[in-house]
Nucleic acid binder design. Structure first.
Length: 682
DNA sequence: GCGACTTTCCT
DNA sequence: GGAAAGTCG
């Protein structure tokens, strides 16, 4: 089937040689050229953060080493357009086939579709595989063939599928190298000099790379796993798997994790070890959440930027950059929150429990827009993962059908005594509180003066008073919710009266720009593509390793005068409606190929992203276009799933959305956007 | 062992 | 808010 030419194996977030179906297919087909394309500008505002790039750098080196020892190097390419780079690689190597593994974030869905389309039209055989999930999202449906809308139902179904997830594949024994002599490597600069210093400590704690991932997995299964149900909610103990960054980059196959863990479970079940059995269930559940994040992303590609429940769109977020800064710097006056934020700042890592605490505090107490928090996580987490983080923040924000109630505030004081009962975690990250007795460690504002004095604490001076009181936060939250429902009702009424135009551009439903003064993303008014490819962007927040010296950074709050203006620039782009060529005719009337592209940042990407989707998705074409099993298969718009539309915000626009910014961009508002299958081949 | 009550957890 | 699990008489 190889027909003489070699195969390109396109590595992305599957940086492993074991259980890698795309690589296996390439090896089976003959000579292989392995390629990794670094095109971060394609990610828009989700340009990978410093620690994430550090990880990637190590992981690529590791993969290159492994591939070389099997017979072929990893060719790295620096690009601003993955698809055209692929095409160049194909041409310069004379390849006739392209293999890659699926990804499910909205950007990849569109990019990969385009890659298939473009390369197929050049006569290249393109095949793609599932390597990232136990089951492809389109294979997990309810009795009516509809996607699930709650996690537990979804996961129950996954665990009771009639067929097991595929057994992991062994690594190839050797790889016949394709001719890459005319396809030189680009050097990827994934960290600059400044970042190197900040990154130096990371390698003490972490070992990226697929074989290290494998070791981490084995160590976890033979160690902490059995106690997982007991220990998993202690902030400070090394009882979690620490697999998440490995999983993010696909260094370890989730199917291998699943199989090994299941084997252990059977073993413990036979021993009658109930705790061990339960531990496996709980651990698998966290694997299930990762699956679910892809599932949600696939079925609702806007979930990283818009609440899945429509009414949350009307929540009056507190746009207060001072709060945001205090949260980032761990200066909120709530010890558990501050300890967590400083750990994140210093290490790029947070225990899952602490992520819940700090993000819940962010949304419920500070009432800052959840997407700011999500973006900060993206910039700082070692395991930053768009799908998982979007799911996490939506859960915390109460914007999922089965998420937390929005009106309930988690009290960091009580949470503190649950996950850090002895205050050790707080003392480690907040040295200024180190001498405070455990009795007060999670609520120093209640401590008697003499206790504080003895501990060397002066509240408001060397440790802040609570930035917002819980009681005040509760009151404000109730008021905000009342306002939200009023807005929602008003908007609903306006739509029913057909006067939605009249409501104008209410700021509540306008996406709120990520503050620009945080140095975590590209500087304002400077399109990404004009940035130097790397390096010169500043990550000041992350670069202050000294915790104690950081507090007195009294920077003036430049309240960004043009939040409204920058909203347009910061909103992540919207995937366009894409179809296969075979089905292009059916959907052509929807403007399947965009002719409008108002986002200066994505002009180079041409047709990949579309700011103004007004032309798309009239969704009249209810063509749930079934695809052939093999070859250039793509996600397409699917017909509206009317039974959801009452509950979910329509992915393009919320139910009851007023004529906001979004509304104007997406006048056809009542269809649930959905991607159908990007089927597995091979 | 059992029912009423309390606490914990929920993606 | 409601299920599930723990606790006490």
């Amino acid at each position: 089937m190889s027909g003489g030419g070699c195969s390109i194996v396109w590595f992305r977030r599957d940086l492993r040689v074991e259980d890698n179906p795309a690589l296996a297919a390439g090896v089976r087909a003959g000579a292989v050229v392995a390629v990794f394309i670094w095109a971060p500008e394609e990610e828009g505002q989700y340009y990978p953060g410093r620690v994430s790039r550090w990880w990637l750098k190590q992981s690529l080196a590791h993969l290159d080493f492994s591939l070389r020892s099997l017979g072929t190097p990893l060719i790295t390419k620096r690009s601003t357009n993955s698809v055209s780079s692929l095409l160049e690689v194909v041409k310069s190597t004379g390849a006739t086939q392209l293999f890659f593994n699926h990804l499910y974030d909205p950007l990849s869905l569109v990019r990969d579709h385009r890659a298939k389309e473009v390369l197929t039209s050049q006569g290249i055989t393109v095949r793609s595989f599932n390597s990232d999930l136990l089951y492809e999202p389109w294979d997990v449906n309810d009795a009516h063939g509809q996607p699930f809308t709650t996690f537990s139902a979804f996961w129950e179904r996954c665990l009771s599928m009639p067929y097991d997830p595929q057994a992991p594949l062994l690594p190839p024994k050797r790889i016949i190298p394709g001719d890459a002599s005319r396809c030189p490597c680009d050097t990827l600069v994934l960290e600059d000099e400044l970042e190197k210093a900040s990154n130096a400590l990371l390698s003490r704690a972490w070992s990226p790379g697929w074989s290290n991932a494998d070791k981490a997995l084995t160590a976890f299964i033979n160690g902490p796993l059995i106690e997982y149900s007991k220990n998993r909610r202690k902030a400070d103990s090394a009882t979690t798997s620490f697999l998440s960054p490995h999983l993010h980059f696909g260094e370890v196959s989730v199917r291998k994790v699943f199989h090994l863990v299941r084997i252990k479970q059977v073993f413990w079940a036979n021993e009658g070890n109930k705790a061990g059995e339960e531990s496996v269930n709980l651990f698998l559940k966290s694997i299930g959440l990762r699956e679910y994040s892809r599932y949600i992303s696939f079925n609702h590609p806007y979930s990283h930027e818009r609440p899945l429940l429509g009414h949350l769109k009307f929540f009056p977020w507190v746009v207060n950059e001072g709060y945001f800064k205090a949260w980032r710097q761990g200066r909120t006056g709530y010890p558990l929150v501050d300890a967590g934020m400083r750990e994140l700042w210093a290490t790029g890592w947070l225990h899952d429990r602490i992520r819940v605490v700090v993000s819940s505090f962010f949304v419920k107490v500070l009432q800052l827009p959840w997407r700011w928090g999500m973006k900060y996580f993206w910039d700082t987490l070692l395991d930053a993962d768009l799908e998982s983080d979007a799911l996490g923040w939506q859960y915390i924000s109460g914007t999922l059908p089965d998420g937390r109630e929005f009106d309930r505030i988690d009290n960091p004081q009580f949470e503190g005594y649950k996950c850090d009962p002895n205050g050790e975690y707080v003392r480690r990250w907040l040295p200024e509180l180190a001498r405070l007795p455990t009795e007060w460690i999670h609520h120093p504002w209640n401590a008697p003066e003499y206790v504080l004095q003895a501990a060397g604490i002066e509240l408001g001076s060397n440790y802040p008073l609570p930035i917002v009181g819980i009681d005040a936060a509760e009151v404000r939250l109730q008021e905000a919710l009342i306002q939200m429902w009023q807005q929602e009702a008003a908007s609903r009424a306006a739509i029913e009266n057909g006067t939605e135009e009249g409501l104008g551009d209410s700021s509540e439903s306008t996406p709120i720009a990520f503050p620009q003064d945080t140095h975590m993303e590209e500087r304002p008014a400077e399109p990404v593509r004009n940035n130097p490819p790397h390096g010169t962007r500043r990550y000041e927040d992350q670069m202050v390793p000294s915790i104690t010296s950081s507090h007195v950074r009294v920077e003036e709050e430049e309240t960004s005068s043009d939040l409204r203006n920058s909203a347009a620039d910061n909103r992540a782009e919207v995937p366009i409606n894409v179809t296969t060529q075979q089905n292009a005719r059916e959907t052509m009337n929807q403007g399947g190929l965009p002719n409008v592209n108002r986002n200066p940042r994505v002009q180079n990407n041409g047709t990949m992203w579309l700011r103004n989707a007004a032309e798309d998705s009239t969704a009249e074409s209810s063509s749930s276009t079934r695809r052939e099993r093999d070859g250039g298969v793509v996600p397409v718009w699917s017909p509206p799933a009317s039974n959801f539309s009452e509950q979910f915000v329509d992915d393009e626009n919320g139910i009851g959305a007023s004529s906001s910014y979004l509304q104007r961009q997406h006048p056809q508002s009542h269809q649930l956007m959905n991607w159908t299958r990007l089927p597995q081949t091979g």
